[in-house]
């Protein structure tokens, strides 16, 4: 096998079909980038689910003086007995694993950390403005329904916030993004396959004279087909490299940006690297398969 012969043939083929080659490269690049984004969102979702699994709590906020919540109207805030009764009620529930009381001072500390950058808000809020709450951790976060129902009716409770519900909305959005990216990627993979097929067909037509002679003098099928397949591989590889660049940009500007708000980072560079290698292998594989299938039809050997 003479490598320089094959490569000069490949180069001639790519140059003759420049417009088609560019179309293939762009389609593969965008298709693989979207596939990669879908995979990255996926890993982000599972990473975040693990992270939040043992952290989600049900927050039971207690009435304070002049609380605007309708359930607290008229009362002068939660009193000692109500608070003790509430704790007993929560601890008596079979679904509850652990319960903690967060007083106004602690809530203010947390608030200060969370909104450290917002000085205007911080100066406007006093310790007294912070509600007291019970932080309830459930054995199984899925079983929040009954717990919330019972607690919402209890005396001295202003409102109950289920973090899981909030997270589920967020995960729902992420899953939609993932689904959307993967569906579009699927369409682009189909488009790329057809484009490669067309490119190979043109290429085979352009070089029918050479391939005819090669066939006649007894060149092996591999020798005749390899330049065409290599054209696909090279277009696929260039597309894959562009997709890798797009994925890195997405990671730096989109995922890292979003993670700033969520306070923790799950999308590591290792994940990005494995996503990139996976999409690249997939892209090249599509190109090889599409080339082979087309060659079987248009290059009789």
């Amino acid at each position: 096998m003479r490598a320089n012969f094959i490569f000069s043939e490949v180069w001639i083929g790519l140059r003759r079909n420049l417009t088609m080659t560019i179309a293939v490269i762009v389609t593969v690049a965008i298709g693989m980038a979207l596939l990669g984004i879908g995979l990255m969102v996926n890993s982000q979702i599972s990473g975040m689910k693990d992270y939040w699994a043992d952290k989600v709590e049900v927050s039971v906020f207690l009435c304070k003086k002049n609380d605007p919540f309708p359930k607290c109207k008229g009362s002068g805030g939660v009193n000692e007995e109500e608070q003790t009764a509430l704790r007993a009620l929560i601890e008596g529930m079979p679904q509850v694993e652990q319960v903690e009381f967060e007083d106004a001072a602690k809530a203010y500390e947390n608030f200060k950390v969370q909104y450290a950058s917002n000085t205007v808000l911080l100066s406007a809020i006093q310790v007294d403005d912070m509600p007291e709450s019970f932080r309830v951790k459930l054995k199984d976060p899925e079983t929040y329904g009954a717990v919330i129902e019972q607690l919402e009716g209890a005396a001295g409770v202003s409102n109950v916030v289920n973090q899981k519900k909030l997270l589920e909305n967020f995960f729902g959005l992420m899953e939609k993004i993932r689904g959307f990216a993967l569906v579009i990627a699927g369409f682009l993979v189909i488009a790329a396959t057809l484009l490669i097929g067309n490119t190979v067909r043109l290429s085979a037509y352009n070089r029918r004279r050479e391939t005819g002679i090669m066939r006649l003098v007894g060149a092996s099928n591999l020798y005749i087909q390899l330049p065409f397949v290599m054209e696909g591989v090279i277009a696929g590889l260039i597309g894959g490299v562009l997709a890798a660049v797009l994925l890195i940009v997405t990671k730096v500007f989109l995922f890292d940006g979003v993670q700033g708000y969520l306070g923790n980072s799950q999308l590591t560079w290792e994940t990005v690297a494995s996503v990139i290698s996976l999409t690249m292998v997939f892209g090249v594989l599509i190109c090889v398969l599409a080339s082979f299938v087309t060659l079987r039809r248009y290059l009789r050997v």
Partner: peptide
């Protein structure tokens, strides 16, 4: 088949 064709030379009217 390619090995068979290596043992056969071909000439045509249109030179190719």
């Amino acid at each position: 088949v390619p090995h068979l064709r290596r043992r056969i030379g071909c000439v045509f009217q249109d030179f190719r």
